[in-house]
Write a protein that binds this DNA or RNA. Structure first.
Lengths: 149, 149
DNA sequence: GAGTTATAGTTCGAAATCGTACCTTATGGA
DNA sequence: TCCATAAGGTACGATTTCGAACTATAACTC
């Protein structure tokens, strides 16, 4: 018998929403003044997948409206943590590049988070976290595809 | 050997942030005009745990600032979906009660979500969802306590 | 190759979020 | 009882979020 009780959805998504709040608060407590979670998320993304991404690409990756991404990138540019250049392959588009300052801020923030990571690693079974990751990834992919389809 | 690679945190919290975005979008697509996810979350919470809760209690439950909860409740009052009365036990406080319209809206929204639930149940293994729920709950509790402590 | 349609990005305005400061009422000592 | 401190809630302002409309370029079709 399959579990199709709608309650499970509300409960899971509710927990996810709360964890999102809490993890964002932890991150933002370590960010330099003027930066918030979306800024760091972009810096981190550009570091991990390589810079030169386009705004629309990142908007899709994070599932935020492109207007929000415009605003976030503008904020990062204001702090000189990224810079944008025209996209030679597409005249409508631009590409976003990390500056040295941007890389440095990202590294500093991660270093600053070490105590938080340590506390979490000490008090919570990391194997359980690792175990749910593939499920979360699959769920994210499924919801993403369901949205398009 | 224990997995303490910081990357696991970023990856898990990143997936959670994206799922939060997607699930919120799904919900809001089914909400009547003028209502957004936090409004529904309050209606649902009051239905599940019983109304007569105080704003601060709900702010803590959802881990949002109390000013945000003030604003959300004001929105619900504007739509006559909840009403607030003084708290006889505490002169500083108030209690929030569902109206009949509030209960009806909550029920209608859940009914409207049935197709989304069905699609999810059909395409995603519900057992996997059920399996991660306790981990998410424990993680939420841990982060919540770490925040206080 | 002209015309239609789609896509990347911005502008603009409305609403939501949230930190700070503040008011009011409780609570906990001296 | 008085005073200090804590807690519930709101007012206010700065910033964020995001939908709608718009511009500019690309892609597709006939």
């Amino acid at each position: 018998m399959r579990n199709t009780d709608p309650a499970i959805f509300f409960e899971v998504f509710n927990e996810i929403a709360i964890i999102e709040q809490l993890s964002r608060a932890i991150l933002e407590a370590r960010l330099p003044h003027g930066l918030i979670a979306p800024h760091f998320t972009v810096l981190n993304h550009l570091t991990r997948v390589g810079d030169g991404r386009t705004p629309i690409e990142m908007a899709r990756a994070f599932q935020v409206p492109k207007t929000s991404m415009t605003h976030t990138i503008k904020g990062l540019e204001g702090h000189a943590l990224v810079e944008t250049r025209a996209n030679a392959q597409d005249g409508r588009s631009k590409r976003v590049w990390l500056t040295d300052a941007g890389r440095a801020v990202r590294a500093d923030v991660i270093a600053g988070l070490a105590p938080d990571f340590a506390q979490l690693a000490a008090g919570f079974d990391m194997n359980r976290l690792a175990a749910i990751k593939p499920v979360l990834t699959d769920l994210r992919i499924f919801l993403d595809q369901a949205r398009d389809g």
